[in-house]
Amino acid sequence: YTHPVKSIHNKVISQLLASEPAPLRASPDPVTPDSDLKTLMTLCDLLNRELLVMISWAKHIPGFSSLSLVDQMALLQSGWMEALLLCVVWRSLASTQGLEFAENLHLNEPQCKNAGLLELYTPLRLLIDKYQQLNISHEEAVALRAMALANSDAEHVENGDSVLRFQDGLHEALQDYEVNERAAETHRVGKLLMTLPLLRQSSHRAVQCFRRLHIQHLVPMHKLFLEMLDTKI
């Protein structure tokens, strides 16, 4: 998979763009009849694979691999869902409704409701609307995704100074990008960062949804996905 990497001055942003994983496709079980449960099973399988890819992606964020293993784990344990959801948001930007979890898995509002994901649908659509209004670029989206992980407010951080330096590096990269590419929009970095509370809210709702679905034994979930759900709340 090759990426059409544009000529971007900032090395961190360039590295983030180059590390963007190829989009995954949903793999619905061909023999199971369509149902809300099948939709959920397909979604959980997709998210588990996204999670694997995301952990690999995190290693390529400039500065991440310099953190201790304990801190890498801490950031991923608190920020994984935010990073996953930003991918969904990015993919859904072209649509005026629905959530595009994959090219072949687009869920509209009634489908989300029937699958028990309505409380996730509403904040995510609000987030998508915000990014549509901002006309967010791919560079900004990848920077925010890395920042969501870096800024995940993990509780058990071993070396707080290292995490702060990691955050600063990403923040500087975004500021540098905006100065060079969007000089006329002086408040743009602030506007982008002000979307992050809604992302966190969406992430909490998503975790609650999936935990509930697991507790109700509705959907079989992969071990990694369960392990990560276990770290939240």
């Binding site: 890819v53 952990i55 890498q72 071990k223 392990e227």
Partner: peptide
């Protein structure tokens, strides 16, 4: 880390976490 064995293993792997 005991509770999060898979994440721990994936991060320790030097190769991309693809499996």
């Amino acid at each position: 880390t005991e509770r999060h064995k898979i994440l721990h293993r994936l991060l320790q792997d030097s190769s991309p976490a693809d499996g």
